[in-house]
Design a protein around this nucleic acid. Structure first.
Lengths: 204, 204
DNA sequence: ACCAAAAGATGACAGTTGTCATGCGGAATG
DNA sequence: CATTCCGCATGACAACTGTCATCTTTTGGT
């Protein structure tokens, strides 16, 4: 047999991180050479260990898994990236692909799929959750502009028009305009519903 | 050495379930005798295997981990229950304790704590995340009435006063009153922030 | 330099939301 | 039986939101 596949794991919940490592260590041909609790740490870890594959969560403090994937793709093009996440959102998948990830796997899938996925990706194949892939191609594009996203995000946090305006150095009226645009684009009845829809699609 | 500790795991994300099982199987004195993807399955599993300890997530389809803990406490009092969850919410902890759980552990903690926790609980000790325990005792009680909770929940989903009134067979004004009460009790500036706060504390 | 598209601002208007004082009727408690 | 409390309703008012039409200022492309 060749060398073992060298893997780095990034996941913010320590216990899950440890558990995933234990899972992978049961495979004879895979070895976990590094673990990180966030994107920034993962990046350092990759620079020193040069793994074959990076497996990363998306929602992490410091640096999101999507940003991490982009950085890795740019600075360490030989490292293959697999996104491992709870969220079956077409928007996330799309961003992951744009960021140069080779795999997108859901935490819902059986545990056995993780090692399979790592092996395939290391051979240069792409592995994408089939249901999600279908939805992502057929499904709608993110219709929001950057400003609309910023405004809608804050509105979803419970901030008022005035507060948002201050934070973004806009006039209150402009904030209302962006919000109104976002609401109509998303077919929502108000800002809260709009934020919910956007979150569900992975656009926030 | 005595018999191994017999453990059943309940967790809705299959990959995490498998990973946690792999983690526990690395311990020489612990054996995972059953796995379940939801509370109902776990209950069946417990009836047939009679484990020493049940480790369960909270947010699962079919039957929540908190409901499961209560059922287990009632029907199988010899089985110790450990709640393993993402959520550091005083409200959840309180409900878990009321439901007869012996342990409350966060997925944020190092992987090694899981087996420690299981061993202690099996010896009859209680194991509760220390930070959370402090917050739960010192921290506030849930100040919301049932109506306020119903109304606030729906408001957080983006529903308007009118819609909520219809659903709950109340007048629109009454809905506004409940919402206003909830907002002031929670020290929020509006319904969205109020809903956020209540969710964060585990009161929704 | 020119034109068109964007980003942003303004103002007006209706509808929704947050607050508060008050009123009503049915438990519950004495 | 009277009293009090609680759940619910009403009405009034100010503040905030959502929608639109219109306008100015950048910005980018040719």
């Amino acid at each position: 047999m060749n060398q073992k596949l060298r893997v780095i794991l990034a996941e913010d919940q320590s216990m899950i991180l440890g558990a995933l490592a234990a899972l992978l260590e049961t495979e004879p041909d895979i070895s976990v050479v590094g673990r990180a609790n966030n994107g920034r740490e993962a990046l350092r870890c990759i620079a020193t260990h040069m793994p074959d594959v990076l497996v990363t969560d998306i929602e992490m403090p410091e640096m999101s898994g999507l940003t991490l994937a982009a950085e890795v793709h740019q600075h360490f093009p030989r490292v293959r990236t697999v996104i491992l996440t709870t969220f079956a959102r077409a928007g996330y998948l799309r961003r992951a692909m744009d960021a140069g990830a080779q795999g997108y796997l859901l935490k819902d899938r059986p545990a056995s799929e993780l090692s399979d996925c790592i092996r395939r990706v290391s051979r240069g194949l792409r592995v994408i959750d089939p249901e999600l892939a279908a939805e992502a191609w057929s499904g709608e594009q993110d219709p929001l502009t950057e400003r609309e996203r910023q405004v809608l995000w804050r509105a979803g946090e419970g901030k008022s028009g005035g507060e948002i305006a201050q934070e973004l150095h806009l006039s209150e009226g402009t904030v209302r305009n962006y919000l109104s645009e976002a609401i109509s684009k998303l077919g929502a009845a108000n800002r809260v519903e709009a934020a919910r829809i956007a979150r569900a699609k992975g656009w926030l």
